[in-house]
Design a protein around this nucleic acid. Sequence first.
DNA 1: GTAAGCACATGATATTTATCATAATTTGAT
DNA 2: ATCAAATTATGATAAATATCATGTGCTTAC
Lengths: 226, 226
Amino acid sequence: MKSVSCSDCLIKSEAAKNLDTPELNILGNSCVETSFNKGDTIFKQDALSSNIIYLQSGLVKLTMEGPQRSQILRLKQAPCYLGLPTTIGDKINNYSAVALEPVTACFIDINIFRNLLSINSDFSYEIIIGLCKNELDQFHRCVKLVQNQIYGRLAGNLLYFADEIYKSEEFNLPLSRSELADLVCTSRETVSRLISNLAQENIISISGKHVKILNREILKKISQNG
Amino acid sequence: MKSVSCSDCLIKSEAAKNLDTPELNILGNSCVETSFNKGDTIFKQDALSSNIIYLQSGLVKLTMEGPQRSQILRLKQAPCYLGLPTTIGDKINNYSAVALEPVTACFIDINIFRNLLSINSDFSYEIIIGLCKNELDQFHRCVKLVQNQIYGRLAGNLLYFADEIYKSEEFNLPLSRSELADLVCTSRETVSRLISNLAQENIISISGKHVKILNREILKKISQNG
DNA sequence: GTAAGCACATGATATTTATCATAATTTGAT
DNA sequence: ATCAAATTATGATAAATATCATGTGCTTAC
């Protein structure tokens, strides 16, 4: 945990690029950089929410306790802000954030963040754009979750890893089977079964957490048609 | 369709309450008030999105075409803004808005709206708060949709009508059975069946679209436990 | 007044998926 | 290396729900 100089930061957010040097100093003076290991909780549902978190590096899951089980709302990959909705929209965290790999994150006091929003309208507008895009993503994800069958959801998420996160046909799953189940909203067993199926049909190859996409076309069709 | 004087408007949004008279005049000069009848489309998915809409009165559904069928993302009740995420977050509407009853709405050009965001930080912050709260709502709704069984979702939505929309144990459903199915993400037939069940068990009484909640306690339990 | 069309209800069947049970495999600790 | 614990796989069964089929009542048009 260390204080930082935000003006020197090489991985500024789109919003922070609009801040001038004095503003970056305001940010830097109240900003604390922290590292997390895989599995560490960055913030926790039902705790008081008093910081905006800027994720500098790493991959994080947002989880919410549902009526039946815990669910992964979405994954967030650096660079991005974490906890804007829950810190600004409520006094208490409506969900948790957990590191899926080693992560570095900057904690920004909500009052400092508010101050920056009020003195720099370009910064503020970038935040608004980000929130809007997030909500659109969320709508799309929700519709797919509800309408597609599990086979389609699983296929869609495998493509998401390949295309958005790792940008490669081959990658190591950052999630256990059980977490994958929380992500596609089903049971561990069903995830196991369907992964086995995909492998048997030579659509993917799988060995432990290592996935290789063998037939992207079919995987895409499965993802779209349910 | 008529031009309006926003400074005289009695149903200002929380955000617009922060605008001073000159700012309200900017708004008023580019703001057009329009009426819609039940069933009218206010804006349409895949069309260019160039206006923020302030819903002055009435009830609206937001619908998105999913991979299998059309789905109701959520209902929006006046007073509120419509289409912030889709107008600011993308060039094209990601969803449609359809009036469920007679509606009046003000169309605000996106450039004027952006201008107001940049010159008045209190206005801007209220918009941010609204977006954040929306996203939290959306997370909760999505988790319930995915984890609860249909009986629970239906019960939850009936309570939503009673508590949030009509603030009464007795009301007329603003949706057909088919639309209700789009809202709780199931088939028409299943909605019919479950409504009949609820009525047979004397938890609600139903006659056409008229609903009366007879046993709120049980309905709540069903809503929570799936 | 009758026919046509539409929304809604309901029974029968098929499919998807959860759950339960058990086995296999991997991982970690000693 | 060996054993215990955790994770993953897989088969059998049951439950929820979609789909298909049919029927009923209500509205609208002519």
